[in-house]
């Protein structure tokens, strides 16, 4: 029997047999990709904390985004909070995990955020109002009762996306990029 392609990949995926030096390496995939450049650098505590905190922080950032018109919050701070969640993820999981969890390209996020904000600014002109003016939309949603919506929320959504995109781009350029450069140069981090 010859080694088929399937055979090779099963042998090469590095799971069995476990090398002696890595017998205590965590098997469970606490973060999405479950792998990192230097297994010795992993911290189980940080990974587990991140796993618990990451979605919570994202939800909290959405709360800040929505509440921004009436209380402390808004697109910028919400975007930064969400960005911090990604920073935590990057610190815990390294760039391999980061690449797995963040699939959209940062420029696309930045561009669409900017576009959303600008279109929000331009839409009032179509109704004869000054550019960038806002209005309150009220509706009776069945289960929720009366819901009020400031149109400036869409501007905030744009800013939110923009900031998240910028943080992702920063992590890619300054975090991931520098790490790759250092690996290329053969330096230890």
């Amino acid at each position: 029997m010859t080694d088929g392609p399937g055979m090779t990949s099963r042998l090469n995926d590095g799971r069995d047999p476990v090398p002696f030096e890595e017998w205590d390496r965590p098997r469970g995939e606490w973060l999405l990709s479950g792998e990192c450049r230097r297994p010795g650098d992993r911290s189980l505590l940080l990974e587990m904390t991140t796993r618990a905190v990451f979605p919570t922080v994202l939800v909290f950032s959405l709360y800040l985004l929505l509440v921004g018109h009436y209380g402390p919050g808004g697109g910028f701070s919400a975007g930064l909070v969400a960005g911090l969640a990604f920073v935590l993820r990057y610190i815990a999981g390294g760039n391999a995990d980061f690449g797995a969890v963040v699939s959209p390209r940062a420029p696309v996020v930045i561009g669409s955020g900017l576009a959303v904000a600008l279109v929000t600014g331009l839409v009032p002109a179509a109704f004869g109002a000054p550019v960038l003016s806002t209005t309150k939309l009220a509706a009776d949603v069945p289960l929720f009762g009366p819901v009020e919506l400031q149109t400036s929320l869409f501007l905030d959504v744009g800013v939110y996306l923009l900031i998240v995109g910028v943080v992702l781009d920063l992590l890619r350029a300054l975090g991931d990029g520098i790490e790759r450069d250092m690996d290329d140069a053969g330096e230890a981090l």
């Binding site: 910028f76 910028v166 920063l170 350029a173 300054l174 520098i178």
Partner: peptide, 20 residues
């Protein structure tokens, strides 16, 4: 001041990248 902080934040990251 908030606007200025945002701008300073952006330029700080840019300078970091440039310095690197």
């Amino acid at each position: 001041a908030l606007t200025a902080i945002v701008i300073t934040f952006a330029l700080t990251t840019f300078l970091l990248a440039l310095g690197y």
